[in-house]
């Protein structure tokens, strides 16, 4: 190190700028499209979560400023230079006072964050404030590989990979899965919840603005996982009622055979039916049949033993390969139908 102090100075300057340097291109680029769906809520659940997030950002920014500030100052002020080469640092064991301060303040911050967190956790399990008088619409969500099946039990209709919902109406999602564990997420409207076979979880969401929103599965479940996007259109209650009537009168009936095909590993486009599969199976029931098709999941690895299950639905084995013809539809364009039931 020939010119240590020059190097040190340079290093300090760069040192405290590291995170800023990296931030710069990000800031520049994110300016191009500064929309972040979590920051643009379209429903009370997402909005309440956003308030919580913003609240936490304030405290985290405070902590960052203090730590970054202390760090930059200390590293610059106490760096070794030729002038201070024989400076012997003092023997400091610590300070009970300082330990107290930097323990208590974080405790206070944690308390400040905990209270609204717990409040929000409980609130999200209920119909949002201001909508408690409105009758919720119930939608059964069944995740399958690799598609979403939405059943409207009260309306008696079923859709695949898209949802129409009325605006300003609480939606009581009853979530379950026909197979793998998935996660039902519509970030514009609220947080996510897992779907699990032979179990039912519940999620209340509500759209307070009409529009089209993207939904995703966030819990990895194999080859077709990336294709599990679905769309949600929030429409006026009148439009919604018209759509339901249209579906009931024009959409085909779902047969049990086609339903089993739906459960097989494949990516589908959109489909619409004028009845629901709940007539013959509710996957959220602990005693429902098992619909698994291990033979259809084989790929290039060495085959392992597949076990026959006594409670497995037996009608699948003769239909190998039929469902695998459908290609993966990434763009969200309809193959089987659009939001108007066509």
């Amino acid at each position: 190190m020939n010119k240590p102090w020059k190097g040190a100075q340079k290093m300090f300057k760069k040192g405290s700028i590291i995170p800023l340097l990296a931030l710069l291109p990000v800031l520049l680029l994110s300016g191009c499209d500064s929309h972040m769906v979590v920051f643009e809520p379209k429903g009370p659940a997402a909005r309440e979560i956003l308030h919580l997030i913003n609240w936490s950002l304030i405290f985290m920014a405070l902590v960052a400023i203090v730590v970054f500030g202390l760090f930059g100052y200390i590293v610059w002020k106490y760096r070794e230079r030729p002038e201070n080469k024989d400076y012997e640092p003092p023997e400091e064991h610590g300070s009970a006072k300082l330990e107290f301060i930097w323990t208590v303040i974080p405790i206070l911050i944690v308390i400040a964050l905990t209270i609204p967190t717990v409040k929000t956790i409980y609130n999200l399990e209920k119909v949002p404030e201001g909508y408690k008088n409105i009758k919720p619409i119930i939608i059964n969500v069944t995740s399958a590989d690799w598609k979403w099946i939405f059943s409207y039990p009260e309306q008696g209709i079923e859709t695949v990979n898209y949802l129409n919902v009325p605006v300003d109406t609480p939606i009581q999602f009853k979530l379950t899965s026909a197979g793998t564990m998935n996660s039902f997420w519509i970030p514009a409207l609220g947080g996510q919840k897992y779907t699990m076979a032979k179990m039912e979880t519940q999620l209340y969401l509500l759209a307070d603005q009409p529009g089209e929103y993207i939904g995703r599965n966030t819990n990895f479940n194999g080859k077709g996982y990336a294709g599990m996007e679905f769309t949600v259109e929030a429409q006026s209650p009148q439009k919604f009622a018209i759509w339901v009537k249209q579906v009931k009168s024009t959409a085909p009936k779902l047969t049990e055979k086609h339903y089993v095909d739906l459960l097989k590993p494949s990516n589908f486009g959109r489909e619409t039916f004028s009845n629901t599969h709940l007539a013959w199976v509710n996957h959220g029931d602990m005693n429902s049949k098992t619909y698994t098709f291990p033979e259809l999941y084989k790929n290039h690895d060495y085959p392992g033993q597949i076990f026959k299950e006594p409670d497995n639905n037996e009608t699948n084995t003769k239909m190998d390969g039929q469902a695998e013809g459908k290609s993966m539809d990434m763009s969200g364009h309809t193959i089987g139908g659009d939001h108007n039931g066509n």
Binding site: T180, F220, K298
Partner: peptide
């Protein structure tokens, strides 16, 4: 269930 034989039957 993904990591089980029902959904990843290979070894």
């Amino acid at each position: 269930p993904l990591a089980g034989k029902e959904f990843t039957p290979g070894i």
